[in-house]
């Protein structure tokens, strides 16, 4: 009895691991614990310049984002320590934390786009036949997202101009508001470029792309369950 219960647990565990349907990743893009893409996720024949550029940008941004997010944490802990007399009080800690949150959110756009880590509903993609319709859906999505990021970046540039003209700064540390806005511009521009690169990628080695797209967005990161 004991043994059977234990073994049931073990097999249950094993079952649940293996039963993560291989197809779920094709329609669930909201995932936990995103990880670096596997080599097998990539189209096997590379388009050297484009892939190298996108991957290089991705790697740089990941380091940058990790450091910035760590800084948010440290700054907030320093503020708590300061208020409780462990360190000297620091004004403006919450300003740094807030702006870094904004900055990391927007600078993450290219990484989210490349790894298809955005929150999106893929019911349509799930029900659409694989092959050509699937590929064209991807193209439409990349085109819309890319166009939006570039529109958004265009307007954000005007906002940066406005902030620079008025010289508006944050209340406590006098951080120019054009700085976080500039990071927003950067994130949106790079997000637009990555979207367009991915769009172009669907036309290069198109057959391979169609083949890969049966399992969802090629290069999409997924959890291991």
């Amino acid at each position: 009895m004991r043994r059977s219960r234990a073994s049931r647990t073990r097999s249950g565990r094993a079952r649940s691991r293996s039963s993560v349907p291989t197809s779920w990743s094709s329609f669930a893009r909201s995932r936990r614990l995103p990880r670096r893409p596997r080599v097998s996720d990539q189209a096997s024949r590379r388009v050297p310049v484009l892939d190298a550029a996108v991957n290089g940008l991705d790697r740089v941004l990941r380091v940058l984002l990790t450091v910035a997010f760590g800084a948010i944490l440290v700054v907030t802990l320093v503020q708590i320590a300061g208020r409780n007399g462990l360190l000297s009080t620091m004004t403006g800690a919450d300003e740094i934390a807030r702006y870094l949150m904004v900055v990391t959110t927007f600078l993450a756009i290219p990484v989210l786009t490349k790894g298809r880590l955005h929150i999106a509903v893929d019911a349509l993609s799930h029900y659409l036949p694989a092959g050509v319709p699937q590929v064209w859906l991807h193209r439409v999505i990349f085109a819309i997202e890319g166009a939006f990021y570039l529109f958004f970046a265009n307007f954000a540039v005007l906002v940066v101009g406005n902030y620079q003209r008025t010289g508006q700064t944050s209340a406590e540390l006098s951080i120019p508001l054009s700085w976080p806005m500039l990071a927003i511009v950067t994130g949106a521009v790079l997000g637009g470029l990555v979207s367009l690169a991915l769009l172009v990628r669907t036309f290069l080695r198109a057959e391979e792309y169609a083949d890969k797209s049966r399992q969802g967005f090629p290069g999409a990161e997924r959890t291991d369950g």
Binding site: R32, R35, L65, F69, M101, L112, L117
Partner: peptide, 14 residues
Amino acid sequence: VLNGLLATAPILLI
């Protein structure tokens, strides 16, 4: 830390 951020950023963007 990066995983935490990449899970957060899509929600904050929304």
